[in-house]
């Protein structure tokens, strides 16, 4: 049997199978049920109302996506150009490490990863649901979601790192020697006396493709006993080029273009058990400081990164340890 005859036979048999499934005219019960519909079911309002109600979800999706885009667009301009303004201007003052100031901030309640993922999931769901109701609105929402998704990816690719100018050289500290054969961070001893201020200098660089706004150093809410351990008190900024030597200014948020860095002074006070300026390295116990984390925003979305400093601040205890 030829293929053509096969197809004709298949079609004939198929029609026969479907005809066998045909039950004939609609039963009387169905006819009565349908006839009662206008009496038992409301007609669903005017065409305009129906169209509006159908468009609610896609419009919401589009609105949410556009809102995200509007928030992101003003900051998308300098993306990737590397021509940002760098550190913004701040009033210069005499550096005074005894002054307690701003720049120590709590961790952000939600970080970019959660925000970006939630926004994308919400946008995609609304766009897909919207597409089933009003196709053009769904497509529009999907396009906006794609743009926002790209921006979100750029946000996640942006990070803050230790800048090229990173030094311990502040007051109340002294650089130690790196152990022979070691390539790790070199020790910096806090030589400030008990309760006395010390400062360490470092710089933060925008290592990603988008501008960031540096908001400060994150103060760990679970810091150890401040009576024993060194405590952060303030953050100062050093606007002098190639510096960390002052003059400086109390910290205010800093806008950093990609590749730009800002010099900062982290000021703290030594614990009540600090050994002070004279101590012998051999036989002395030390307490370290928590990892340095900075908080910043990318496209207005909060992020937090740990800065890997090239030095390791340590506070020595007096001989015999810290009396309890």
């Amino acid at each position: 049997m030829s293929e053509r005859e096969d197809d004709l036979r298949l079609e004939r048999e198929l029609r026969e199978v479907l005809r066998e499934r045909d039950p004939g005219p609609a039963p009387y019960g169905l006819r009565r049920r349908v006839a009662r519909i206008p009496d038992t079911v409301s007609s669903g309002g005017s065409p305009l109302t129906r169209r509006l109600s159908r468009a609610v979800i896609p419009v919401l999706g589009l609105a949410a996506a556009i809102t995200l885009l509007v928030l992101a667009l003003p900051l998308l301009g300098p993306m990737g150009t590397g021509t940002g303004a760098g550190p913004s201007a701040a009033p210069v003052a005499t550096f005074d490490p005894t002054v307690r100031g701003p720049g120590l901030v709590p961790p952000p309640p939600v970080e970019a990863e959660g925000i970006v993922v939630a926004a994308l999931v919400l946008g995609i769901v609304l766009a897909v649901v919207g597409m089933r109701r009003e196709r053009w609105l769904g497509f529009a929402a999907l396009i906006v979601v794609a743009i926002v998704g790209y921006a979100g990816w750029q946000v996640l690719a942006t990070d803050a790192v230790a800048g090229p100018v990173a030094s311990s050289g502040g007051i109340g500290v002294r650089d130690g020697d790196l152990a022979p054969g070691s390539s790790g961070p070199y020790p910096v001893y806090i030589t400030a006396g008990p309760g006395q201020p010390f400062s360490i200098g470092f710089s933060v660089e925008n290592g990603g493709p988008l501008p960031i706004r540096l908001e400060g150093v994150v103060l760990d809410p679970n810091l150890p006993d401040p009576a024993t351990f060194p405590t952060f008190r303030a953050l100062w900024r050093d606007d002098a080029p190639d510096g960390l030597t002052g003059p400086a200014a109390p910290f205010s948020s800093i806008d950093l273009a990609p590749g730009h860095s800002a010099g900062l002074w982290l000021v703290g006070t030594a614990g009540n058990c600090a050994a002070g300026p004279s101590f012998a390295i051999d036989g002395t116990s030390f307490v370290g400081m928590p990892a340095l984390r900075v908080r910043y925003t990318v496209l207005g979305i909060p992020r937090m990164d740990t800065i890997a400093l090239p030095f390791d601040p340590m506070q020595p205890f007096p001989p015999g340890g810290c009396p309890s």
């Binding site: 479907l18 499934r21 045909d22 039950p23 004939g24 005219p25 609609a26 039963p27 019960g29 169905l30 049920r33 349908v34 519909i37 206008p38 079911v41 409301s42 007609s43 669903g44 309002g45 005017s46 065409p47 129906r50």
Partner: peptide, 30 residues
Amino acid sequence: YRLAAVILGDRVEAEDAVHDAAVAAWRGFG
């Protein structure tokens, strides 16, 4: 009804499908 029964292969379900379609049609009749 005949088309629904052929598609669904079930007469009872076909009745429900036609009824539901009529309800939807009545709501969108305007």
